[in-house]
Design a protein around this nucleic acid. Structure first.
Lengths: 334, 334
DNA sequence: GATCATCTTGAAAGCGTTGTCATGAATGGG
DNA sequence: CCCATTCATGACAACGCTTTCAAGATGATC
């Protein structure tokens, strides 16, 4: 076992065959006589040969890499997605390359260009603010899977979940528990999913004949701290409420802290519902009632879809859905 | 703007110069007459040319990629590290490629081999169970930065933080608050850092003249659920304790839930201390007293170190340290 | 205006593979 | 045992770029 790198040509020489034969054995491209195969395998072991993927990529035109554009690797939601992508790609020979868009359309475009220059064979875009046409443009060269939007175009495969319906269901659940004064902490302004969730909240109130009180709708931006801020705003404005529906779990966590700091108990005084079902949400005290997003499954499905497209198959539509998980942060209003 | 890909040669032809000249302009390798430069730049814009990084890598021998081996992308701790790596690499031209070892030495070795076959120019190993010699072996070809261990070898740069001292400090803090019956939830068995943290816990007890009660030391494995389990074990064994020091925040979160479910209040009935200072820890109710690991800074320092090594400079030692952050999950025993 | 150093440029040889094509060997049918 | 296939193999040209190397152009010097 030596650190020195060896090439296919050296292996060929060592085994007394031509480079083509070694390549054929490596890739199973054609039949090779057993005697030569053994000689080559011996040579490979002896020289500790590892194929140079860069050279393979250049020669074959396939880099065996998949570009994955997320917004923020460190966020728990994307982390789970990426885990799913990794799982979906495991054993396929494809390696993911992750890039962060940081919620900035310019930055996203730049990252995608970078991925393209690295000759990725396919692209997974996990939400983000890019224009549809930019994606369609990429799809002219390589297949693109995009989540969080609906986009019908050649070579584009989109997964979309009905956030609005799920938000409606979550809010309706609170209403069914007797809550009428339900506050909503919105997600980041401008994000389609935060608009959808707010629309679902309003849908549910309307369906129950509850007037929408704009003072109960406070702006957040998906971070924990914005949940804390939202709660203090609600409280300092002295707007009475018995429940909060936060547009994601991170803000629900923040809201829970804001309430805690003022001695307001969850769920005794205020019921709390989130959205996402992050790994930590079921460990909150109390465990959070929330809408489960199948983040891992989304990532995995995206990866699997891309791989089947790349291998020339027709991908099958995954069955992904949002689901209300009731835990202990909500209770019936007496 | 067209989807068609163009090559350096096409640009050269379009501009009426040789490929060499285009390459020189792209890389600033040599002086080129302004008239030609302009012609080439025009051609680049016209053809929407993007250099093929794969070809560049093969020709130059530098792939401009950095392999980053973590254990679990989705874990909040590694997520932050990776964010730091990304930040440290931003603007340097290097792209990180992440790989997950999943806490398995075999898997780690396999991942590193894969990264090597992709011709990464450097390697960042964020902890992990690999043997030192395996790393030294890699370092024969490319520079290696490794965190979480001390390793003096050529071409290896290691960052190590004194977990034991920090754990001692955290435990001593509990003792200073009047706690004598302090339980410890251990990290995953076999991990050096979990052993270190346990040793620090024992150090502090010994220094205070408190006998170590083995029944107060319960095994965990760094996950939230293992914190829940540890607490139920402690409770069902009816071992009296007034404080818990968990070897990481995830287990502290689990412990906090376990206590909550039995109506045991934090910090009124039991004080709780964690380790890591994850993003969510300051949002727990109550906010968690914990040892802050500068995860982001570790990642960033690792990246910066590697980049300076790759550019032929001598990297400067980063100043990284663990720090006890006291918040509201601990209180003086009356 | 001749000589020599300095700039600018193009030709061409890689980088480590893959994949096509041609060739000689082996196989099978009659 | 000969001819037509099929098999197994090697030569060689890509892939898109970098990087010598050498030569032509330019300019400085006396």
């Amino acid at each position: 076992m030596q650190a020195k790198i060896s090439t296919l040509e050296q292996v060929a020489r060592e085994a007394g065959v031509s480079p083509s034969t070694v390549s054929r054995i490596l890739n199973g491209t054609a039949a090779v006589k057993d005697s030569k195969r053994e000689a080559v395998e011996r040579a490979i072991n002896k020289l500790n040969y590892q194929p140079n993927r860069v050279a393979q990529a250049l020669a074959s035109g396939r880099s065996m890499t998949i570009g994955v554009l997320t917004q923020n690797i460190a966020s728990p939601f994307y982390g789970e997605c990426l885990e799913g992508v990794e799982k979906g790609l495991a054993g396929t020979g494809y390696t993911p390359i992750f890039a962060n868009g940081h919620w900035d359309a310019k930055e996203e475009a730049h990252r995608i260009a970078l991925l393209a220059s690295r000759q990725v064979d396919g692209l997974i875009v996990l939400t983000g603010g890019m224009l549809d046409e930019a994606l369609v443009h990429q799809a002219a060269r390589i297949p693109v899977v995009v989540t969080g939007r609906q986009l019908d175009a050649a070579n584009v495969y989109s997964f979309w979940l009905d956030d609005r319906a799920a938000a409606r269901e979550a809010t309706a659940y609170l209403i069914s528990l007797g809550h009428h004064q339900i506050a909503h902490i919105c997600g980041a302004p401008g994000h389609p999913d935060s608009e959808e969730r707010q629309a679902g909240y309003k849908d549910a109130l309307a369906a129950a004949g509850i007037a929408i009180d704009p003072r109960l709708i406070v702006q957040g931006e998906y971070s924990e701290v914005s949940g804390v801020v939202a709660v203090s705003q609600l409280l300092s404005d002295r707007i009475p409420f018995t429940a909060i529906f936060a547009a994601n779990d991170q803000m629900a966590l923040g809201a829970r802290l804001g309430l805690y700091q003022r001695g307001i108990r969850v769920p005794e005084d205020v019921s709390l519902v989130g959205f996402d079902d992050l790994p930590y949400s079921s460990y909150m005290a109390p465990p959070l009632t929330t809408v489960r997003q199948p983040a891992f499954e989304i990532g995995m499905a995206a990866a699997q879809t891309l791989v089947s497209v790349l291998s020339g198959q027709t991908p099958q539509r995954p069955d992904l859905r949002l689901e209300l998980i009731t835990r202990d942060s909500t209770r019936r209003l007496r």
